[in-house]
Protein backbone atom coordinates (compact mmCIF):
# COMPACT_ATOMS: atom_id res chain seq x y z
CA UNK A 1 0.00 0.00 0.00
CA UNK A 2 1.39 3.33 -1.09
CA UNK A 3 1.66 6.11 1.44
CA UNK A 4 -0.30 9.20 0.57
CA UNK A 5 1.34 12.54 -0.01
CA UNK A 6 -0.36 15.89 0.57
CA UNK A 7 -0.11 18.62 -2.07
CA UNK A 8 1.81 20.75 0.40
CA UNK A 9 4.47 18.12 1.01
CA UNK A 10 4.64 17.35 -2.71
CA UNK A 11 5.35 21.04 -3.28
CA UNK A 12 7.92 21.10 -0.49
CA UNK A 13 9.75 18.03 -1.83
CA UNK A 14 10.05 19.42 -5.35
CA UNK A 15 10.90 22.91 -4.11
CA UNK A 16 13.85 21.40 -2.23
CA UNK A 17 14.84 19.39 -5.28
CA UNK A 18 14.69 22.51 -7.44
CA UNK A 19 16.62 24.59 -4.91
CA UNK A 20 19.46 22.19 -4.27
CA UNK A 21 20.28 20.88 -7.70
CA UNK A 22 22.41 22.90 -10.05
CA UNK A 23 22.03 22.28 -13.77
CA UNK A 24 18.79 20.31 -13.25
CA UNK A 25 18.15 17.02 -14.99
CA UNK A 26 20.41 14.20 -14.01
CA UNK A 27 21.87 15.99 -11.00
CA UNK A 28 18.49 15.86 -9.30
CA UNK A 29 17.80 12.14 -9.76
CA UNK A 30 19.61 10.88 -6.63
CA UNK A 31 17.80 13.52 -4.57
CA UNK A 32 14.39 12.59 -6.05
CA UNK A 33 15.09 8.95 -5.40
CA UNK A 34 15.94 9.62 -1.77
CA UNK A 35 12.94 11.88 -1.17
CA UNK A 36 10.35 9.75 -2.96
CA UNK A 37 11.49 6.13 -3.03
CA UNK A 38 13.22 6.44 0.33
CA UNK A 39 10.06 7.89 1.88
CA UNK A 40 7.92 5.06 0.49
CA UNK A 41 5.94 7.31 -1.89
CA UNK A 42 7.13 5.54 -5.05
CA UNK A 43 8.22 2.01 -5.80
CA UNK A 44 11.72 1.51 -7.13
CA UNK A 45 10.39 0.23 -10.50
CA UNK A 46 8.00 3.19 -10.81
CA UNK A 47 10.92 5.53 -10.25
CA UNK A 48 13.00 3.86 -12.96
CA UNK A 49 10.08 3.97 -15.39
CA UNK A 50 9.43 7.65 -14.63
CA UNK A 51 13.07 8.60 -15.11
CA UNK A 52 13.24 6.82 -18.44
CA UNK A 53 9.99 8.46 -19.62
CA UNK A 54 11.11 11.90 -18.42
CA UNK A 55 14.15 11.65 -20.69
CA UNK A 56 12.13 10.76 -23.77
CA UNK A 57 9.60 13.59 -23.38
CA UNK A 58 10.42 17.06 -24.70
CA UNK A 59 11.44 19.81 -22.27
CA UNK A 60 13.57 19.76 -19.14
CA UNK A 61 14.14 16.35 -17.54
CA UNK A 62 13.59 17.87 -14.09
CA UNK A 63 10.22 19.35 -15.05
CA UNK A 64 9.11 16.15 -16.79
CA UNK A 65 10.06 14.10 -13.75
CA UNK A 66 8.08 16.46 -11.50
CA UNK A 67 5.13 16.30 -13.87
CA UNK A 68 5.12 12.49 -13.99
CA UNK A 69 5.56 12.06 -10.24
CA UNK A 70 2.91 14.71 -9.49
CA UNK A 71 0.45 12.99 -11.82
CA UNK A 72 1.18 9.54 -10.36
CA UNK A 73 0.71 10.73 -6.77
CA UNK A 74 -2.02 13.38 -6.92
CA UNK A 75 -3.39 13.74 -10.47
CA UNK A 76 -3.39 17.08 -12.31
CA UNK A 77 -3.21 19.14 -9.11
CA UNK A 78 -0.16 17.14 -8.12
CA UNK A 79 1.39 17.87 -11.51
CA UNK A 80 0.86 21.62 -11.15
CA UNK A 81 2.21 21.66 -7.63
CA UNK A 82 5.28 19.53 -8.43
CA UNK A 83 6.16 21.53 -11.57
CA UNK A 84 5.66 24.80 -9.68
CA UNK A 85 7.85 23.59 -6.83
CA UNK A 86 10.65 22.58 -9.19
CA UNK A 87 10.55 25.77 -11.24
CA UNK A 88 10.12 28.28 -8.39
CA UNK A 89 13.65 28.31 -6.87
CA UNK A 90 15.12 28.74 -10.34
CA UNK A 91 12.57 31.44 -11.19
CA UNK A 92 13.13 33.40 -7.99
CA UNK A 93 16.92 33.27 -8.11
CA UNK A 94 17.01 34.39 -11.74
CA UNK A 95 14.55 37.24 -11.11
CA UNK A 96 16.73 38.54 -8.28
CA UNK A 97 19.95 38.15 -10.27
CA UNK A 98 18.59 39.70 -13.46
CA UNK A 99 17.09 42.60 -11.50
CA UNK A 100 20.62 43.54 -10.44
CA UNK A 101 22.23 42.56 -13.73
CA UNK A 102 19.94 44.83 -15.74
CA UNK A 103 20.91 47.73 -13.46
CA UNK A 104 24.61 47.06 -13.01
CA UNK A 105 25.39 44.83 -16.00
CA UNK A 106 27.29 47.57 -17.79
CA UNK A 107 29.73 48.15 -14.94
CA UNK A 108 33.24 47.14 -16.02
CA UNK A 109 33.68 44.78 -13.08
CA UNK A 110 30.48 42.88 -13.95
CA UNK A 111 31.68 42.56 -17.57
CA UNK A 112 35.04 41.34 -16.32
CA UNK A 113 33.44 38.83 -14.01
CA UNK A 114 31.74 37.20 -16.98
CA UNK A 115 34.90 37.53 -19.02
CA UNK A 116 36.59 35.36 -16.39
CA UNK A 117 33.75 32.89 -15.81
CA UNK A 118 32.78 32.21 -19.45
CA UNK A 119 35.97 30.22 -20.30
CA UNK A 120 35.16 27.91 -17.38
CA UNK A 121 31.62 27.39 -18.65
CA UNK A 122 33.22 26.48 -21.99
CA UNK A 123 35.32 23.91 -20.12
CA UNK A 124 32.20 22.50 -18.44
CA UNK A 125 30.43 22.18 -21.79
CA UNK A 126 33.45 20.49 -23.41
CA UNK A 127 33.42 18.08 -20.50
CA UNK A 128 29.73 17.33 -21.12
CA UNK A 129 30.50 16.76 -24.83
CA UNK A 130 33.30 14.39 -23.90
CA UNK A 131 31.21 12.45 -21.36
CA UNK A 132 28.24 12.06 -23.69
CA UNK A 133 30.41 11.35 -26.73
CA UNK A 134 32.28 8.57 -25.00
CA UNK A 135 28.99 6.97 -24.02
CA UNK A 136 27.14 7.12 -27.34
CA UNK A 137 29.75 7.20 -30.12
CA UNK A 138 30.89 3.60 -30.37
CA UNK A 139 31.58 3.18 -34.08
CA UNK A 140 32.54 5.14 -37.20
CA UNK A 141 28.97 5.36 -38.47
CA UNK A 142 27.86 7.14 -35.29
CA UNK A 143 30.90 9.39 -35.47
CA UNK A 144 30.00 10.26 -39.06
CA UNK A 145 26.38 11.08 -38.22
CA UNK A 146 27.42 13.38 -35.34
CA UNK A 147 29.92 15.23 -37.54
CA UNK A 148 27.34 15.52 -40.32
CA UNK A 149 24.70 16.92 -37.95
CA UNK A 150 27.14 19.44 -36.45
CA UNK A 151 28.03 20.53 -39.98
CA UNK A 152 24.37 20.94 -40.98
CA UNK A 153 23.64 22.87 -37.80
CA UNK A 154 26.61 25.24 -37.89
CA UNK A 155 27.16 25.86 -41.59
CA UNK A 156 23.76 25.27 -43.16
CA UNK A 157 21.95 26.76 -40.15
CA UNK A 158 19.47 23.92 -40.12
CA UNK A 159 16.92 24.33 -37.32
CA UNK A 160 17.72 22.21 -34.19
CA UNK A 161 14.34 20.52 -34.58
CA UNK A 162 15.40 19.16 -37.99
CA UNK A 163 18.65 17.96 -36.47
CA UNK A 164 16.66 15.96 -33.92
CA UNK A 165 14.34 14.58 -36.63
CA UNK A 166 17.28 13.53 -38.81
CA UNK A 167 18.88 11.79 -35.84
CA UNK A 168 15.64 9.98 -35.00
CA UNK A 169 15.01 8.89 -38.59
CA UNK A 170 18.60 7.66 -38.82
CA UNK A 171 17.96 5.62 -35.64
CA UNK A 172 14.91 3.96 -37.21
CA UNK A 173 16.51 3.37 -40.63
CA UNK A 174 19.60 1.85 -39.05
CA UNK A 175 17.60 -0.74 -37.11
CA UNK A 176 15.26 -1.80 -39.90
Amino acid sequence: MRKSCSLVSLFAIFFLIGAFTWGGGYAMLPLIKRELVGAGLLEEEEFIEIVSLAQSLPGAVAINTASLVGWRLRGWRGELVAIGGTALPSFLSIVVVSFFLLRFGDLPSVRNFFQGAIPLVAALILLAVWDLGRKIVTDLEEMFIVVLLVFLLRFFHLHPLWIMCLGGVWGVVRKR
Partner: peptide, 18 residues
Protein backbone atom coordinates in the same frame (compact mmCIF):
# COMPACT_ATOMS: atom_id res chain seq x y z
CA UNK B 1 14.82 3.30 -32.26
CA UNK B 2 13.85 6.90 -32.94
CA UNK B 3 14.72 7.86 -29.35
CA UNK B 4 18.05 6.04 -29.67
CA UNK B 5 18.72 8.02 -32.83
CA UNK B 6 18.14 11.28 -30.94
CA UNK B 7 21.28 10.71 -28.90
CA UNK B 8 23.83 11.53 -31.64
CA UNK B 9 21.64 14.55 -32.47
CA UNK B 10 21.81 15.70 -28.83
CA UNK B 11 25.59 15.31 -28.98
CA UNK B 12 25.69 17.39 -32.16
CA UNK B 13 23.70 20.14 -30.40
CA UNK B 14 26.14 20.08 -27.47
CA UNK B 15 29.12 20.33 -29.82
CA UNK B 16 27.45 23.34 -31.40
CA UNK B 17 27.05 25.03 -27.99
CA UNK B 18 30.71 24.31 -27.21
Amino acid sequence: WFLQGLRPAVLALLVSVA
